[in-house]
Write a protein that binds this DNA or RNA. Structure first.
Length: 273
DNA sequence: AAGGTTACCTGCCCGC
DNA sequence: TGCGGGCAGGTAACCT
């Protein structure tokens, strides 16, 4: 389901509902997610101090210095519901709080996963240690991108979707930002002109920021924590628009496969350079 | 080291 | 109507 803007949107929805809540019990469906669930007992009777995002992970910081790390995979959703609300299909984990609320984790495909880590050690956690920079921070600059891609010969689209380069850019926003930057997705990653790296960085930042502003995208099963869909899908210019006219030049959008992922672009507006 | 392939899992949509 | 194949927002373990 989620790329960075969707995770950001989920967190914005969860924050006011669970910040300060005290955890009393955790139950699960018995089915594993991508990895076995962590032992939640160290978090019992602890208050949630804050919730934040790192890459596409949600971080729930508890008062005892432990952080619950959660990735939504493709189809993960969080909902805050009253304790008495019935379980729905594919609901795999329930965290119950003293205020009568529960945080439910639903995940059809079970590609999501959760883990525990001391808050102070998060940087060393295997899920974080090798991650690239956050796209919305100043660390993600044209110099940074050009430099880290110096030896990369994959396509530029695969390169910007690589977490070791920059985090949070998934399949949709990769296509969208390359279109806005006028860069062909198949262009070899280390072959861009300096100006193109700058344009790409700029457009990755703006497309992600716009999507966060819009509350994420609506695609099949993406639902925010409040149960309402996001709106950014209305703004897709190339994603999912195979054979439809380019919104700029009217020529048909093409669909190709790069690294096994569907990729959309306008051959006229995104020429080789 | 970088790059390609495969796997994880369920549901939906399409063509026959 | 039913069935099989292909595909879906992500990540990482394998191999070469």
């Amino acid at each position: 389901m989620p790329e960075l803007p969707e995770v950001e949107t989920v967190i914005a929805g969860l924050k006011p509902q669970i910040t300060g809540a005290k955890l009393v019990s955790v139950s699960n469906s018995g089915k594993n997610l991508r990895y076995p669930l962590p032992n939640f007992s160290i978090l019992l009777q602890q208050h949630i101090q804050s919730v934040e995002r790192r890459a596409k992970y949600l971080l729930f910081h508890f008062e005892n210095g432990q952080t619950l790390i959660w990735h939504l995979g493709m189809t993960g959703q969080f909902h805050v519901l009253a304790q008495h609300q019935a379980k729905t299909k594919h609901e795999h984990v329930t965290l119950a709080f003293t205020d009568g609320n529960t945080l439910r984790y639903r995940d059809t495909r079970r590609f999501g996963y959760a883990g525990l880590c001391r808050t102070n050690d998060l940087d060393q956690h295997p899920w974080f240690a090798k991650l690239g920079v956050e796209p919305l921070l100043d660390d993600f600059s044209d110099d940074y991108l050009q430099n880290i891609l110096k030896t990369r010969k994959t396509s530029i689209k695969q390169a910007i979707m690589d977490n070791h380069v920059v985090v949070g850019v998934g399949n949709i926003y990769a296509s969208e930002s390359l279109f806005r930057a006028g860069i062909n997705p198949t262009q070899v990653a280390n072959s861009l002109k300096p100006k193109q790296y700058a344009l790409l960085v700029q457009h990755i930042k703006t497309v992600l920021a716009e999507a966060i502003e819009a509350g994420g995208s609506t695609i099949s099963d993406f639902v925010k924590a409040d149960g309402k869909p996001g709106y950014f899908a209305h703004s897709f210019q190339v994603y999912g628009r195979d054979k439809q006219p380019c919104l700029v030049c009217k020529k048909p959008i093409e669909k190709i496969v790069l690294g096994g992922r569907a990729s959309f672009f306008c051959p006229h507006c995104q020429p080789f350079k």
